[in-house]
Design a protein around this nucleic acid. Structure first.
Lengths: 200, 200
DNA sequence: GTCTATATCCCGATAGAC
DNA sequence: GTCTATCGGGATATAGAC
């Protein structure tokens, strides 16, 4: 007989975000619904609407949580490596690792994220990561092209990893992350080729 | 008063794929349902099940159509450029362009594609593209690393483009595609850095 | 802030007639 | 091969009581 506990703990808002994360990590975004999260917590399906205007607002909160999680994992790497090129490679490595260790959360950011313009708190949570990234790039190249190339490459490795291109073994994450780090260094090395030729 | 035309034209299967493509292009995969496609075509919601076992099978057919479309757009590029490095760059450019001009179809391949192992026809449609890509890489490097780097980079530029990182102007597609082509050439140039050092 | 109850809507899929 | 009709399920969101 299931314990049909009332909800006493006083922070349903945070508990809902936790549960949404769980659901998404277990079976992907498609498995998430406000109703299902409510059932898991043993509250009425209407209870969440006292804390979130609608489903999208809860998903946006999950996205904020995700960016904060990545930021926390990235921070020690930034402390460890001070050289710009090494930092960029470390960021790319951490990005791919995060994608591999939090697959569904990472995917959610690109599959199901509600319109960012309507949820500025998501953009705000992304900001510090972007700042660390851009400042490392800026120390190496004044133009945007290197930033775009590195960002694209890291993201691409992450997607390939999730797509199974690196196999399903335990070291797939590691190999993908190292590949992204090396590709980043290769792009830095040939960064002059990235700049649009003058007068073309 | 809506014309409540019966369906006479005899190829409901193909018409369903067309309509699914339309729906996805208009409002994303979330807007697609077998029921909605049926309504658009003026047939009963049960009619599609005479041609597709279930919803996923129809989506798989859309994926096949998408790969064929990309293949058709890629072919003239491959005829035009014969040098391996130039070919790789041309493939990357075409890939990003395709993503930009068929946004929702492209996204669908990664957001909503049903399990590939259960739909071998999708993998088969992807095969020729993969072959052209791998043969160009192989002429430049015997190892897998360059292939992964170029693939990741092209895919990453495509995702950045769809994410709005290149702006919303008319030339965003062009700039993203050129960026991907140049990054590809940069990776080719520094390809030695991609290889895992021996004995590490 | 949470509950019960409900309105409203949509979907996938099947059965059986034509 | 298509239609009518329907089953069974699940979702979002609101109203009003406590």
């Amino acid at each position: 007989m299931a314990e049909r506990r009332r909800y006493h703990h006083g922070d349903l808002r945070a508990a809902l975000i936790d549960t949404a994360v769980e659901l998404i990590e277990e079976h992907g975004v498609r498995a998430f619904s406000v109703a299902e999260a409510s059932r898991r917590l043993g509250v009425a399906v209407s209870a969440p609407y006292a804390h979130f205007a609608d489903r999208d607002e809860l998903l946006a909160a999950v996205a904020v949580r995700t960016y904060e999680l990545f930021r926390a994992e990235l921070a020690p790497e930034l402390d460890r490596v001070r050289q710009p090129a090494g930092r960029l490679a470390a960021i790319a490595r951490a990005y791919v690792r995060f994608a591999g260790t939090h697959r569904a959360l990472f995917s959610m950011l690109f599959e199901a994220l509600p319109d960012k313009t309507r949820h500025p708190e998501v953009a705000a949570a992304e900001q510090p990561i972007d700042d660390a990234f851009r400042s490392s790039v800026h120390a190496l190249s004044g133009s945007d092209e290197l930033a775009q190339a590195v960002e694209a490459t890291a993201h691409g490795y992450a997607m390939l990893l999730l797509d199974g291109a690196f196999g399903e073994h335990g070291d797939a994450i590691q190999r993908a992350a190292e590949g992204a780090a090396r590709a980043t260094l290769a792009l830095v090395e040939s960064r002059d080729l990235l700049i649009r030729p003058i007068g073309r």
